[in-house]
Amino acid sequence: MSKAFATIWRNVRKGDGPAAVAFLAPSFGGITVFFLLPLIDTVRRGFYDVRGVNFIGLESYVSVLNNQAFRLAAANTLKFAAVCIPLLMVVSLGTALLLRSIKPMGKFFKTAFLLPMAVPVASIVLLWQALFNEGGLANTVLLRVGLEPVAFMDSGAAFWVLVFTYLWKNNGYNMILWLAGLDGISETLYEAAHADGANALQTFRYVTLPCLLPTVGVVSILSLLNSFRVFREAYLVAGAYPNDSMYLLQHLFNNWFMNLDISRLSAAATMLGVALLLIILVMRRFLDEKD
C-alpha cells in the first residue's frame, strides 16, 4: 500500500511542471507586465539620465550614497523597522496570550483589535490631526494631568507617533497570526511540562516559544510589509518634509519624484530592492524550513 502511495507521489512530483505552468501563467503574466517589467525598467533607469536616453553608469549610485538626505532617510527607515517590528511582535504576542487566557470576551476583543485595519487612510489622517496637532486632544490630556504639552509632529516625538500608528493598525492582524500559532501547539506538551513541575514562565520559555518559531517567519514578513505601508499615513499627516525623526526613504523617493530626479530615485530604489531581497531570502529559511 505504501509502495503504491510512493509511486503516485512520484508521478505527482514528476508531472507537476506543465500543470504548474497552466495554473501560474495568468497570474504570472500579469505580474510580469504590471510589476516585473516596470521593476526591471526602474533598475535600468538607475544607470541612465533623467530622460532615460544617455547611459551615465554608476553616477547616480555614487550621488545617492553621498547624499545627506538619503543617509538620514535610510537610517530612519532602518531604525523604524528595527524598533517597530520587534515591538509589534512582542505586543501582539502579549495580546494573543492574554486573549487566550480569557475565553469569554474573546470575540469582542478580537473585533476591537482588528477594526483599525478597516479604517481608510483619509479617515486616519483626520483623526491623527485632531489627536496630535499642537492644540490636539493628546496635548489636552497631557495638560489635564499637569504635564507639559508636546509638539508631537514637530519634534522627536513624531517618530513615536509613527510607531504608535503602526502598532495601532497592525496589532490585531498579528495577534490573529499568533493565536493560530498558539492553537497549533499540542496540549500534551503543556501537560508534560506541567507534570515536570515547570512554572508558567518556564512553560512559556521551553514549550511555547520553540513551538512558535515557525510562526515568527510569517509574522515578521507581514510586519515588514505593513511597516512600508505606514508611510501613507505619515505623508498625509505630516507632509513631504516632516520632522527629521520620521523622514523615511519613501519621503525621499516621493520628493525626488516631485523634482524629476528619477535616476537617483531608481538607484536608491534598486538598492532598497536588493536589501529587501536579501532579507526575504533569510526569512524564507523560516518560511520554508520544511521543504
Binding site: 545627506q68 538626505a69 499642537e134 514637530d154 518634509y241 520632522n243 527629521d244 523622514y247 523634482n259
Partner: peptide, 24 residues
C-alpha cells in the same frame, strides 16, 4: 506666539535642510 524666533529658525532650518539636501 507658539514658538520663539530661535525655535522658528531651528524648525525651518531642519525642514529646509532635507529639502536642500535632496537637491544636492
Amino acid at each position: 506666539g507658539r514658538l520663539d524666533v530661535e525655535g522658528a529658525v531651528r524648525e525651518i532650518e531642519q525642514s529646509i535642510r532635507n529639502y536642500l539636501a535632496e537637491r544636492s
